[in-house]
Each structure stands twice: as C-alpha cells, then as structure tokens.
Amino acid sequence: MALVTAVDLTAGPGVGFLPLVSLGPAFAGLIGGWRRTVLYGALALLLCVALGTYDGLFGTRRGYTALASVAGVTLAGVIAAVMRGRREAELASVRSIAEVAQRVLLRPVPRSAGPLQIAVSYTSALAEARIGGDLYEVVASPYGVRVIVGDVQGKGLGAVETAALVLGAFREAAHDETDLVALAARLERSVAREVDGEKFVTAVLAEVRAEEQAAVLLNCGHPAPMLVRSNGTVDFPHPPAYALPLGLGTHGSEPPRSYRVDFAPGEQLLLYTDGVTEARDADGTFFPLEERAGLLKAPGAEAALEALREDVVRHASGPLQDDAAMLLLRYR
C-alpha cells in the first residue's frame, strides 16, 4: 500500500495505479484474521479517498470505480478470512480428536518390562497423519513380556478400525492364553469374525521370559525381526514355516508354529513393518536395514531407535511411501 501510494504520487493521475491500493486488504485476508483485514481495508479506503482527491479523480468515473474496487476487495478479504478461520478451527479440532484416537489405539509402551528396555517409533507416510494401519503393543503378562507388531492391509479409516480390533484382542488375550500359538489363534478368530475376509493383517508375536535367555517368536506373514547380537553381528531369524496373515487362516493352511531364538543380555531385537525396509531413495534403492544396525549402539534404547528412524527418513529423502513402525527390545 505504501509502494502504490508512492508510485501514484510520483506518476500522477494519468497512470491509474489507484485501484492497486486494494492489494493491502487482499493480502491481509490471506494471512490474517478478519479484524486485521477490516483494519487494512479501512486504511486502504482512506488512502483511496485521499489519493483520489489529490489526483482530482472524484469528478470522474475513475475515482468512484477505484473506490468501489477497494471496498469490494476488502469485503471479499473479510469473508475469506472468516471462512479460513472456521476451517482452521475445524482442522484443529480434527487433529485433537486424531491425537486422542492415537493415544487410545497406540498407547505409549512401557520403557521397561522385566529384563527388557523398550522403545517404539511410528512414522506416518502422511505428514499430517497421526494414526494409520501399522500397530504395536507390549503387555507384561503372567507368561512373560508379550509383544506384537503388525501391518494392516490397505489404508484409511478401515485399516485403522482393523488395527484397533487386533490391538484390543491382543491386550485381552495376552493375559489369558498360555502360549503364542493359542494367542495367534484367538487373534485370527477375532479378525476373521469382524472383517469377513475383506482385510488381513501381517504380524509378528514375541514372548520374552525373565528366567530364560531366549525369545519365542510367531510369524504371520510379516518381515522377520532383526536380532543384533552383543558382538555386533546381525541375524534375521526366519520361522520354520510362515503362517498366513491374520484374517486368512480360514483358507485351510497349516496352523502357525512358534519357534525359539537365543536372546541374551546385551542383545537387541527389532520388530518392524515393511515401511522401514521398503523405504526407497531417489535411485529406488531399498533401505539397507542390516547395514544400519550399528545405529542401535547408542546407550539408551530410545536414542538408538530415534537415530535409526532419522536414517530411514533421510534415506527416503522425502515422505515415506508407507507407514513405518519399529519396536526395539533391548535385553539389559
């Protein structure tokens, strides 16, 4: 507005810069509230009247046209500011609800349970998203520390609903079932009953008991966990036979079988979803998880997992194509 005023005073009335005074309330309506827009609109009208009088334009149609332009743009700016304010308030409310839903669906895991130090990371493929189809949970049950990390097929609210179903069933069954095979069967029944074959869930279950230097795993079509030994070597313990993902067990496959792996003090077990290993860089190269295992040497489990998460995001050099969840168990 100051620039338009200076140019108008310099160039004179023949150039016709006066209507450009309306840029002030126009930009105010884009970035400010309606009160700010009204303030700049009133200032623009005063400048328009003053400059029009100075240029002698109010004896002609040009002066009144310029005044009408400024008034019209100011009114449009005020309406736009009001509507934008309402949308921002609605968005803030939706985000608040999403954050509450996230705390209910993906509750904070305990930092320690039994002999384990625990850390978790969740990176959404959408920058503004708070929840998605990846899931994780840790339960200190009478049978040991039980963990699940899973990935629901598909995206959107349907995937979130299925994730909530699996987590609810796991939280209850983890305290009741005596072994992981029975626990997986109970999850299978819950998913098959509710989703009716429309969705499935890949998942890996783990159980660690304080008196045993071993972990029991059960894999339902999920990427194999990464086991980092105390000497720095890396292993991906695969099951003797993969079970079908949860929700597809009615297709007549063999029931899932659990298997044991050595898991001693000083070692770490990383459970993750395929959003981690399938993160691609600009050349289309997948994230080399095994090569990055050294990032987990940080003294604290949370710091170690955060370093790995940052490396995944850095490797992708942009938004991830899929949600990426990681859960780290460090045997103290």
Rank of each mutant, 00 (worst) to 15 (best):
V100E: 09
E90F: 04
S96Q: 13
A98N: 06
S96P: 00
V82M: 10
S93V: 14
V70W: 06
A81W: 03
A71V: 14
V94L: 11
V70Q: 04
R87G: 02
V78C: 10
L75V: 15
G72L: 15
G72E: 10
E90V: 13
M83R: 10
V78M: 08
I79F: 00
V73A: 13
S93K: 08
R95Q: 13
S69P: 00
I79A: 10
L91H: 06
M83G: 01
S96H: 06
E99S: 12
I97K: 01
V78G: 06
I79Y: 00
V70R: 04
G72V: 15
R87F: 07
A80I: 12
R86F: 08
L91K: 06
V70P: 01
T74C: 11
S69L: 09
M83T: 11
S93G: 12
S93Y: 04
T74I: 06
G77H: 05
G85F: 11
E99H: 05
E88G: 07
R84P: 02
L91F: 00
V94R: 03
V78H: 02
V82D: 05
L91Q: 14
V70H: 04
G85Q: 05
A81C: 06
V70D: 02
E90P: 02
E90I: 13
R87K: 08
L91R: 15
G72T: 15
A89Q: 12
R87A: 14
E90M: 12
A98L: 12
L75P: 03
A71I: 11
V100L: 09
I97W: 01
A98E: 13
E99T: 14
R84I: 05
R84Q: 14
A89T: 14
R95E: 13
V78P: 03
E99V: 15
S96W: 02
G72A: 15
V94M: 08
A80F: 05
A98C: 07
V94N: 01
R95V: 05
A92N: 09
G72Y: 06
G77E: 08
L75K: 03
R87D: 15
M83N: 07
I79G: 00
V70Y: 05
R87C: 06
E88V: 11
I97E: 04
L91Y: 01
A71K: 04
L75M: 14
L75F: 14
A92I: 06
R86Y: 06
G77W: 10
R84Y: 00
E88C: 05
A76S: 12
E90K: 10
E99W: 00
V73G: 07
S69Y: 02
R87I: 09
V78Q: 04
A89N: 05
R86Q: 15
E88R: 14
S96L: 11
A98T: 04
V100I: 15
V82A: 05
A80P: 01
R95F: 02
R84M: 09
E90Q: 14
V94F: 03
G85Y: 09
E99C: 03
